[in-house]
Design a protein around this nucleic acid. Structure first.
Lengths: 199, 199
DNA sequence: AAGAATTTGGTAGTAACTACCATATGACTG
DNA sequence: CAGTCATATGGTAGTTACTACCAAATTCTT
């Protein structure tokens, strides 16, 4: 790897880290892009080359985790058993997110406080689900392939979101693995049941 | 109703209509707020009092449709059968959206072209699902109520999104009612099944 | 070491949005 | 009906995210 790529990765990381520092200290809205650039000792112009919007600064890690798993799925052979494959996708995303729990918590913290952040977070998951739908549809046969694929992709997305949300909301609660296992059991058992138990 | 409220509703509608006209004609990004204000013959300052962001101009109708159904659900008695209630919620949202098919199509058109619109659309559905989760959790008993409620709310949201998406994507395809019926059958039959049919 | 390719930082400009104030308009009271 | 109060409007000034563009600096190639 040349010096060029090395420096690129270094400044990219530097910008991202400084941004998170400022965001968590003073809030997303009260931090300007110029302040981030100054803290990372680069020009605002350079910052924008790495991160086209302020929100991408927050969401890079989550986006990478999710699309990394999606790309793995894309590379699997066509004969892959779909339930197995989708289960692996869920596990991959969660594993990836667990590599940096503080960052994930910080992202959800910021999303809870700032509408534009939660909007972009929602957009990332929305885009991810759409791309998973396309990939799934390509691996299916039969009638109304798009429809079925969209429902399944939505179910997968749903499980990931609920597990992450539960995990983030109570830090000392159940382990992610257990939550994922429970949700996955429901998924493989035929889907997500409607609740019938009422007080 | 006094003259004041009447005028308020009238200008609100005027602004919204002019905005949609400009958005569909020239695109979301190529329309400025000042142009919309000028077309509606109000000051930009007034426009911002009705619509805090440019995106709310696009999403008002969808948001109202969705949260209208949610509010109906909130007003139901505690003894309401949940599967029935959730099915009604889905039907209500779809009925409401079908009252203005052109607008719905336009919204999804704009969302497809403009990231910030799709982000805010995703945020609306995300917030809706969260609030449905809270309402559902309050009506459930047993263990891990939050978890179950979140999964169920996600499943409901998922069905709505897939039906609307399918409806928007192929204008001359199946009727919304039929799509909803099919999806609802899956939901009531135990959930959303993972696809197993492969080529 | 010279030249090519890429990265950087700065400048100028656009447009969304906020805070604030003076004016106008509909609503209520004697 | 006149006067007053509450609310809606429009304008001004300013902040900030983001874009387009160019000259200088840095890295890569030969």
């Amino acid at each position: 790897m040349g010096l060029r790529e090395l420096k690129r990765e270094r400044t990219r990381r530097l910008i991202s880290d400084k941004a998170f520092e400022l965001f968590t200290d003073h809030g997303f809205g009260r931090t300007t892009v110029e302040q981030i650039a100054a803290a990372a000792e680069v020009g605002p112009s350079t910052l924008y080359r790495y991160y086209p919007t302020k929100e991408t600064l927050v969401l890079e890690f989550v986006e990478d985790s999710m699309f990394g798993a999606l790309n793995w799925f894309r590379e699997q052979p066509a004969e892959l058993d779909l339930p197995d494959g989708l289960q692996s996708v869920i596990e991959l995303v969660l594993d990836q997110l667990e590599r940096n729990p503080d960052r994930v918590r910080a992202v959800y913290e910021l999303a809870g406080q700032t509408p534009s952040v939660s909007a972009h977070l929602a957009e990332v998951t929305w885009r991810w689900r759409n791309e998973l739908t396309v990939e799934l549809a390509g691996r299916l046969a039969g009638d109304s392939v798009e429809f079925t694929a969209a429902l399944a992709a939505g179910a997968v997305m749903n499980i990931i979101e609920v597990v992450v949300q539960t995990w983030v909301d109570n830090p000392d609660g159940t382990e992610v693995k257990d939550l994922a296992h429970e949700a996955m059991g429901l998924l493989r058992g035929g889907g997500i049941p409607l609740p019938t138990v009422q007080p």
